[in-house]
Design a protein around this nucleic acid. Structure first.
Length: 263
DNA sequence: CCTATAGCCTGACGGC
DNA sequence: TGCCGTCAGGCTATAG
């Protein structure tokens, strides 16, 4: 699930449900997902504290505490958040459970445990340490930065878009969608894109991510003109109705329309 | 430095 | 029905 639009949706969800409530208890059901921090350290860092603000960079969500520490969450392939009170609303693969004094809980659920959680002093430092590129929707990413980052890569444009060190936030699904909307073939090397394609790509990148956020990153709500709606081996191109092609790029399954994405 | 690949982890699905 | 291989919206370490 979790690419930039999903994580942005989680961020808004957490902001709407879990701010300014006292943390009463912390349960770490799967310690394997902790990074650079021990179980007691995380418990100690959260207990009795309040969540104050949320931030996001790429696929990372940061929750600032009143202690000025920062809870950082990454959602892997299967992570999500759930705020609930009654036990029957509890999600099935809880890895971290935060309980507030109002009797509600915030669960971090991650079936495959490919997500990570940590607690840091400085989110910007964390971003630097991870070598993340600019967030795909931040104002730091202007056209020239984007262009320079892309045209010095020999890798396929899909791989470049998914490289978090180049731009942070785009993954397998949205790279397909962006390239489809920009009518660019996913296997073209970044260095072979011309100014015209790059401009189109840059505009479409922001447009697609914003549209996805507007629909809570729920593909069922996306426009019919989105390839994501038709993803799958039987899918047809929403533009020309031809059978979509499926291929492997950078170890990931890519769908595209050979007719509409020629360059 | 760059790029491509295997491995991590769990569960759902299709074919035999 | 049961088993097995494959695959999945991610990242990292490693090899070339």
């Amino acid at each position: 699930m979790p690419e930039l639009p999903d994580v942005e949706t989680f961020r808004r969800y957490l902001s709407a449900t879990s701010l300014h409530k006292k943390i009463k208890a912390v349960n770490i059901l799967s310690p394997e997902i902790l990074e650079q921090i021990s179980v007691p350290q995380l418990k100690e860092g959260l207990k009795g504290k309040y969540f104050e603000t949320t931030l996001r960079h790429g696929k990372y969500l940061c929750v600032l505490l009143d202690s000025s520490k920062c809870l950082v969450m990454h959602f892997g392939m299967t992570g999500f958040l759930k705020y609930f009170m009654k036990a029957e609303k509890e999600p099935p693969h809880e890895r971290l459970l935060i309980s507030f004094t109002n009797r509600y809980h915030l669960a971090y659920d991650c079936q495959r445990k490919l997500g990570k959680i940590t607690l840091v002093d400085d989110f910007n430092q964390f971003i630097q340490d991870k070598n993340l590129g600019p967030d795909a929707l931040s104002s730091d990413l202007d056209f020239n930065t984007f262009k320079e980052a892309i045209i010095q890569r020999r890798a396929s444009i899909k791989a470049v878009l998914m490289n978090q060190k180049v731009i942070a936030g785009v993954g397998n699904i949205y790279s397909d969608e962006i390239l489809f909307q920009a009518q660019i073939h996913p296997k073209i090397p970044g260095e072979q894109l011309g100014d015209k394609q790059l401009r189109r790509l840059f505009l479409v990148l922001e447009k697609v991510l914003e549209t996805a956020i507007d629909h809570q990153a729920n593909p069922e709500k996306f426009p019919q003109s989105y390839i994501t709606r038709h993803r799958g081996s039987k899918g047809k191109c929403p533009k020309c109705k031809r059978q979509l092609k499926k291929t492997k790029i950078s170890g990931r399954t890519a769908y595209y329309c050979a007719n509409c994405q020629k360059i």
